[in-house]
Amino acid sequence: MDFKNNIDFARIFQLAPIGMCISQNRIILACNDALTLMFGLNQDLLISASFQILYPTPDEFERTGARIAPIMNTKGSYSDERIMKRASQELFWCHVSGRALDKENPRTAEIWTFEDLSSKRPVSAELTPREREISAMIVEGKTSKMIAKQIGLSPRTVEMHRAKLMRKFCASTSSELVHKLLGPIH
């Protein structure tokens, strides 16, 4: 039997070991079993739903979309780690990567992968939506000035959020904060 000619891509998509979905303009068109298990939502709720259903707050959904759009439009791909929300309301760290299926019109169709990082990086403090956003960028190694420019705040405001995060995580240095945000290494 010639395996190359008999590849069932629909089955591969459905059984992939990480969450996957196809979207158009931030609306889920198709998703696999791993995504439904990760978020605790069945396919009936996910198909035709906005990505907003996966975010802790509508504001975080809007701000993340505004941050991602210019990068997707320029590069045709995007990747980050952010805090997402399960149907149970549990917050968890997730590695999210996306790629445009049509580089000329990146928002028309995209494929996204979601990797649950909760076993390696638990969400260990009560954070505001803005603190979650800034935490994700701190983990990426961005400076306060870079974060401020990317999300439209003053560097001083970002520094204030960073200071609050350091207090919440009992961190005395930025590198200690990053280590605590990343969680225990297993």
Results as ranks from 00 to 15, higher is better:
162 R>C: 05
84 M>D: 04
121 R>E: 00
87 A>F: 02
117 L>W: 00
50 S>W: 00
53 I>E: 02
66 A>Y: 06
77 S>C: 02
144 S>A: 15
119 S>M: 10
86 R>E: 10
143 T>C: 05
99 R>L: 03
123 V>S: 09
91 L>P: 03
91 L>S: 07
141 G>E: 06
72 M>E: 07
137 M>T: 05
32 N>F: 08
171 A>Y: 03
29 L>P: 09
25 N>A: 10
62 E>I: 15
180 K>G: 01
164 K>E: 10
180 K>V: 11
25 N>C: 10
18 I>W: 09
16 A>Y: 12
122 P>G: 12
173 T>I: 10
7 I>M: 06
23 S>D: 07
52 Q>G: 13
127 L>M: 13
153 L>A: 13
23 S>E: 08
182 L>C: 11
48 S>I: 04
20 M>F: 02
129 P>S: 12
13 F>T: 03
5 N>S: 12
168 K>W: 07
165 L>M: 06
114 F>V: 08
28 I>N: 06
154 S>Q: 11
121 R>Q: 14
155 P>K: 04
186 H>G: 14
42 N>E: 14
24 Q>T: 14
30 A>H: 10
38 M>V: 13
32 N>R: 09
96 V>H: 10
88 S>N: 14
84 M>L: 15
122 P>W: 03
146 M>L: 06
28 I>D: 01
58 P>N: 12
185 I>P: 01
19 G>I: 08
73 N>K: 08
120 K>W: 08
186 H>A: 10
17 P>W: 04
7 I>D: 00
129 P>D: 12
107 R>Y: 02
117 L>C: 11
120 K>L: 14
